[in-house]
C-alpha cells in the first residue's frame, strides 16, 4: 500500500507540474499575442493534451484517498462492518472499470500511433497522451484491487470536512 501511495503521489505531482506548465505557457502565449504579436499558435491544443494526461495522472491519488464520491444516505444506519463490505465491492468494480480503461486505451493508443494521429495545428502526436493515461489507469486499477482485497488501510471515504480542514491549515 505504501508503494502504491507513493506512486500515486508521484503521478499527482507530475500532473500538477504539467498543469503548471500549461499555465505558464498560456500566460506567455497571451502576453506575446497582446504585445509583440508573437504567440504560440497551437497553445490551446497543447493545453488540451496536457490536461488529458494530467487528469488521468490524478486518478490514482483520488482513489487511494477514497475521493470518488459515494452516496451514503441509504446505508448510514447500517453497521460499519456491512458498509465496509459494500465499499470493498465498490473498489472491486472500480478495479474492473480502470482495468477495462487501461486495456482499451492501450488499443486506442496503438491505433493513433499507427495512424500518425496528430493535433490539427501543432501536429502534436496523440499517442503521447495515451502513454501517460495507460499507466495511470493501470495503477488506479491496482489500487482498487488492493483495496477490495486488503481493505482501505484505515483510510476513511474522502471526507469533505476533513479535506477542507486540512486545506485551510
Amino acid at each position: 500500500m505504501r508503494v502504491l501511495e507513493s506512486l500515486a503521489k508521484l503521478c499527482a505531482i507530475l500532473a500538477g507540474v504539467l498543469l503548471t506548465g500549461i499555465t505558464l505557457m498560456t500566460c506567455a502565449s497571451l502576453i506575446g499575442r497582446n504585445t509583440t504579436g508573437h504567440s504560440i499558435v497551437g497553445a490551446f491544443e497543447l493545453t488540451g493534451v496536457a490536461a488529458g494526461a494530467a487528469i488521468a495522472l490524478f486518478m490514482p491519488l483520488c482513489q487511494i484517498r477514497r475521493g470518488n464520491i459515494i452516496v451514503d444516505f441509504f446505508t448510514a444506519s447500517l453497521p460499519e462492518r456491512v458498509n465496509d463490505k459494500f465499499d470493498r465491492i465498490g473498489a472491486l468494480l472500480l478495479f474492473v472499470v480502470f482495468a477495462l480503461l487501461a486495456w482499451r486505451s492501450t488499443l486506442g493508443g496503438i491505433n493513433v500511433w499507427q495512424s500518425n494521429s496528430e493535433t490539427q495545428i501543432m501536429g502534436f502526436p496523440e499517442w503521447v497522451v495515451y502513454a501517460f493515461m495507460v499507466p495511470a489507469f493501470a495503477l488506479s486499477a491496482l489500487i482498487g484491487l488492493w483495496q477490495a482485497v486488503f481493505g482501505f488501510g484505515g483510510t476513511k471515504p474522502e471526507d469533505p470536512v476533513a479535506a477542507a480542514q486540512e486545506a485551510v491549515q
Binding site: 498543469l19 490551446f44 496536457a50 490536461a51 487528469i55 490524478f58 486506442g108 496523440e126 497522451v129 493515461m133
Partner: peptide, 20 residues
C-alpha cells in the same frame, strides 16, 4: 467506443478550465 472515450473526455481544451 472505450478505446477513445477517456482520451476524448480528458484531453479537451474546453474542460481544461476546470482543473485550472
Amino acid at each position: 467506443f472505450l478505446n477513445t472515450q477517456a482520451f476524448a473526455r480528458f484531453a479537451s481544451y474546453d474542460l481544461s478550465v476546470i482543473p485550472l
